[in-house]
Design a protein around this nucleic acid. Structure first.
Length: 261
DNA sequence: TCAGTTGTTTATAT
DNA sequence: AATATAAACAACTG
């Protein structure tokens, strides 16, 4: 699930249900997912303290509580759920924050990502690494500026969290398809018009994904057909290609997204 | 049995 | 210093 829109949905879960509530107990079902504290250390830092307003930075969720910030990353299959205290435990619930009237559950099937504790911004930065500006707050000028100084392939550039934070494989394929840019195009070969089209696609894709809490697999979107066996382009009905670009499985339309020269 | 999967890190090469 | 590529991590699903 987790790219920027998904993580923003998890932020809303925390903000709407857990913020302002005291943590009564923490339950660590999977020690390895708690990356830089012991289960006891987590309990000591959190017990009796209320969650405050969470913040999303790229694909990271920052959850301040007490004197620390919880840093959550969701890998490819993580999520955050608010559930009643008596709800059935889920097989992939890894870390649970029990509050009065419900509990926040960090669930993660594949176990990439995890939860870190940071005492200040410096410790947080050491965990997240350097992040570029958040994709959701980027303006056209800043976007153009970033691409000015970038070499190499456009797909790799858009997915690089140090350049722009928050875009993942699905979003980038959707954005490239919307802007009619071939995923292997070199950044330097894109003219102003193409870069503007990329920015427009980035903004419109995010605007419609964030409220949904995911890249919506709706009709008319690449994401709506990308997993089909003989997927066709929703715009021109040409058979989609599947290739590997920047190390990731990539879907694109050979007619809408012309190959680089 | 085997390929494929929404993310990152590491090693290695260019 | 940047960028590219492959493999590894893990746990499934089809």
């Amino acid at each position: 699930m987790p790219e920027l829109p998904d993580v923003d949905g998890f932020r809303r879960v925390l903000a709407e249900h857990a913020a302002g509530r005291e943590v009564r107990a923490t339950v660590v079902h999977d020690r390895e997912m708690l990356r830089n504290r012991s289960p006891q250390g987590l309990g000591r830092a959190l017990r009796g303290r209320p969650f405050r307003e969470p913040e999303r930075r790229g694909k990271w969720l920052f959850a301040p509580i007490g004197d620390v910030v919880l840093l959550m990353h969701f890998g490819m299959t993580g999520l955050l759920a608010w559930e009643r205290s008596d709800a059935e435990p889920h097989r992939h619930d890894r870390i649970v924050f029990r509050c009065r009237g419900g509990e926040l559950r960090y669930r993660n099937m594949r176990r990439f990502g995890g939860i870190w504790v940071a005492r200040d911004e410096e410790e947080a930065a050491a965990v997240t690494g350097r992040l570029g500006p958040d994709a959701a707050g980027l303006n056209r000028k800043a976007f153009q500026e970033l691409l000015e100084h970038r070499r190499g392939g456009i797909k790799a550039a858009l997915m690089d969290q140090r350049l722009i934070a928050g875009l993942g494989n699905l979003l980038v394929d959707e954005i490239l398809w919307t802007a009619r840019v071939h995923p292997e195009r070199q950044v330097g070969s894109l003219d102003r018009k193409r870069r503007d089209a990329l920015f427009d696609a980035l903004r419109s894709t995010l605007r419609r994904s964030i409220p949904t809490g995911r890249v919506p697999p709706r009709r008319g979107w690449l994401t709506g057909v990308r997993d089909q066996r003989d997927a066709r382009c929703p715009r021109c009905n040409t058979g989609l290609r599947r290739t590997t670009v920047a190390g990731r499985p990539t879907r694109w339309c050979p007619r809408c997204q012309r190959a680089p020269r």
